[in-house]
Each structure stands twice: as C-alpha cells, then as structure tokens.
Simulated scan of single mutants.
Amino acid sequence: MPDGKPPLGNAQPISPVIEDLPEGGFGWFLIRDLAKDVCYRRIGAENLLDLRLAIALNLQG
C-alpha cells in the first residue's frame, strides 16, 4: 500500500454511458462506504486488513 495506508476511496465522477465506465476502481470506495472501521497494517511479509461492518440485526423474529 502506498505510504502503508489504504486509499481513501473517494467516489469518482463516472459517465452515464455504460461503454465509457472504467473496468475497475470502485473497490476501495465500496469498502469505505460499507465498513464502519478499516484498519490496514503490514507485519513482516503479511498484509492485514481488518474491517468492521455496521449491520442491523432484526431480533423480533
């Protein structure tokens, strides 16, 4: 990861024409949008990425 930090994942302007959409580049935006906390660290040769998701539970059965 550049500078040992995950990318910010800011939303990028996209074209409404489907043929002009980029093939990639949405991953970090989706991770940042869906995760409550994102923690990246490198230990030795391992990359560790911890995500905490905010989910609602329906406990009313």
Rank of each mutant, 00 (worst) to 15 (best):
Pro22Ala: 09
Gly24Tyr: 09
Leu57Glu: 15
Met1Thr: 12
Leu53Phe: 15
Asp3Leu: 01
Arg52His: 11
Arg32Ala: 11
Leu48Asp: 06
Ile43Gly: 07
Ile31Ser: 05
Pro2Met: 01
Ala11Phe: 05
Leu53Arg: 09
Gly44Cys: 08
Asp3Gln: 06
Tyr40His: 14
Gln60His: 11
Glu23Val: 06
Phe29Ala: 07
Arg42Gly: 09
Asn47Ile: 08
Asn10Met: 04
Gly24Asp: 14
Pro6Ala: 00
Leu34Gln: 10
Cys39Gln: 14
Ile18Cys: 00
Leu57Gln: 15
Gly24Lys: 12
Ala54Trp: 10
Gln12Tyr: 01
Pro6Glu: 02
Val38Pro: 03
Leu51Met: 10
Pro13Thr: 04
Leu53Tyr: 11
Phe29Gln: 13
Ile31Val: 15
Val38His: 10
Pro2Gln: 00
Pro7His: 01
Gln12Val: 04
Glu46Arg: 14
Arg42Trp: 04
Ala11Lys: 14
Ala35Gly: 06
Gly4Leu: 03
Leu48Lys: 12
Gly25Trp: 02
Glu19Ala: 07
Gly24Ala: 14
Trp28Tyr: 13
Leu30Asn: 03
Phe26Asn: 07
Gly44Lys: 14
Leu57Trp: 13
Ala35Thr: 06
Arg52Phe: 09
Leu53Lys: 11
Leu51Val: 07
Ala35Glu: 03
Glu19Leu: 02
Pro6Arg: 01
Ile43Asp: 13
Pro22Val: 03
Leu59Phe: 03
Val38Glu: 10
Leu49Asn: 08
Ile31Thr: 11
